[in-house]
Nucleic acid binder design. Structure first.
Length: 193
DNA sequence: CTCCAGGGGGCCA
DNA sequence: TGGCCCCATGGA
């Protein structure tokens, strides 16, 4: 199975090339993007992020000090703008809480994951995206494309999110760059199908 | 016009 | 747990 997964990876890489996810200038921008992209086309997220950058608000403290109505206007293109304004602020508070902890960068990945999952508005997929792409933790991100991918190539069948995640993490070498590219390639595969 | 995108929470049986 | 609804914009 390991060879099969690696073979599929190489095939996707040959077909689609390097994806270089996540397109962001900072880890915090990754976190913001992870929330804004919930059930939303990435093109719309880019518009929202560009608006936040233009307003010089893509920093934890700056964002927290901004009125909700102003944030809502800026992120409007990404949809669900009222919910997402609330979620951005809650996630940013968690961001600062973690940053304030001594040696938080050495915190075990499972503990870090629990921290993010405790934030209202952050589910498993969003938490794992943040862990992998902002914190560089070896967590394999699962989404609907990944489930279809597993089904299409008869790799694995399950119901729970974590069953899929653990399937990939147990079989693939624990390499962050591999996890990042593989997830991005699966998404690309899903879009082009 | 309909459908869906790099989801998640709340409610109800 | 499983199903359904809501959130909202913009592109195809």
């Amino acid at each position: 199975m390991r060879q099969k997964l690696i073979e599929l990876y190489r095939r996707l890489e040959t077909e689609h090339g390097k994806q270089n996810w996540w397109p962001a200038e900072s880890p915090y921008e990754v976190m913001v993007g992870a929330i804004l992209t919930q059930n939303t086309n990435w093109r719309n997220v880019e518009k929202a992020i560009a608006n936040l950058k233009s307003a010089d608000l893509l920093y934890p403290h700056m964002l927290l000090e901004t009125e909700n109505r102003k944030l809502e206007t800026l992120i409007r293109p990404s949809g669900f703008y009222r919910q997402k304004t609330e979620r951005l602020k809650l996630a940013t508070k968690k961001w600062l809480e973690l940053a304030g902890k001594a040696h938080y960068s050495r915190m075990k990945t499972e503990l870090l994951r629990k921290h993010w999952l405790s934030v209202k508005g952050i589910g498993k997929e969003t938490a794992d995206s943040i862990l992998l792409y902002a914190f560089n933790r070896p967590i394999f991100v699962i989404d609907e494309y990944t489930r279809r991918f597993c089904d299409y190539y008869n790799l694995f069948k399950a119901k729970e999110y974590d069953e899929y995640r653990i399937f990939f993490e147990r079989i693939l070498p624990k390499r962050v760059k591999l996890y990042k590219e593989y997830h991005a390639l699966i998404v690309q595969w899903g879009k082009n199908r």
